[in-house]
Design a protein around this nucleic acid. Structure first.
Lengths: 129, 129
DNA sequence: ATTCATGTACTAAAACCGTAGTAGATATAT
DNA sequence: ATATATCTACTACGGTTTTAGTACATGAAT
């Protein structure tokens, strides 16, 4: 009795990212915009797009014979939802723990760290008014 | 021909978190340590623990009649792996975009932001020497 | 009009996920 | 020794996920 998750599966996310990138497009457009290396049949893409529509992540409108898909859920929304999900499931619901682990990564360059610092500082300044 | 993902599923993660918390324990111990609200049968927990062992996330040793499970993968490792996964799949592989979205969240309190800032600053100081 | 190309809808198959029952082994209690 | 409790191993079931084939409609080309 599994219930379909409100989060996207790997392939759904891959296609949704493509859809966010192009803004809107046909099955063929989305298929072309997917950056992953695994080839998929046209009908596979069509099926997943329909699933995305069923899940409420996208909608479609007919144009000539084709369906033109466009996102319903904003990418920023989903990004936030994903972070909340990860934070809750693995970091005890504390985003600070998440950041701590992130900057713990040695692969992060000095530039990246500096950039992150600026993001935080900017946010703090914004709070102050 | 899907290949089982190297990432954990929701329930696997829930149990693995419990195992990380207690360090090691029997099926019953893990079951007791799970914080989620959904009740699960003893055998369900046992099955998932075995899957975790199959996936290489945990190992078991016999003690009397019971199996005592313990983590193989460190929590910090998995946390990092999860962040990389999320960053790659949704944030174009740029952790800075991830942080930007994180601090974009209005639910974050000033204290949290400040704490995050300190984490970053500490990391920068450590880099300097 | 017949053929060809293209598009969606339907269907399916194989693996996976989540859950848990059943079987069988074994220790404990009476 | 027999009953009871507990534990693991095996199995199964219903739904999801991923992939794609087939059927059918429709517009374009000859």
């Amino acid at each position: 009795m599994r219930r379909r998750s409100e989060m996207l599966t790997d392939v759904e996310l891959e296609f949704m990212v493509a859809l966010w990138e192009i803004g809107k497009g046909s099955v063929r457009d989305v298929m072309a915009a997917v950056t992953g290396e695994t080839k998929r049949a046209y009908t596979s893409v069509a099926t997943v797009l329909k699933i995305l529509e069923d899940k409420g992540y996208a909608r479609s409108e007919r144009q000539d014979r084709s369906l033109i898909y466009s996102p319903v859920v904003q990418r920023a929304d989903y990004e936030g939802r994903s972070l909340k999900n990860l934070s809750d499931s693995l970091f005890g619901g504390t985003p600070t723990a998440l950041v701590a682990r992130l900057v713990d990564n040695e692969d992060l360059t000095d530039e990246m760290i500096q950039e992150i610092k600026e993001i935080i500082d900017t946010r703090i300044r914004k709070d102050d008014g």
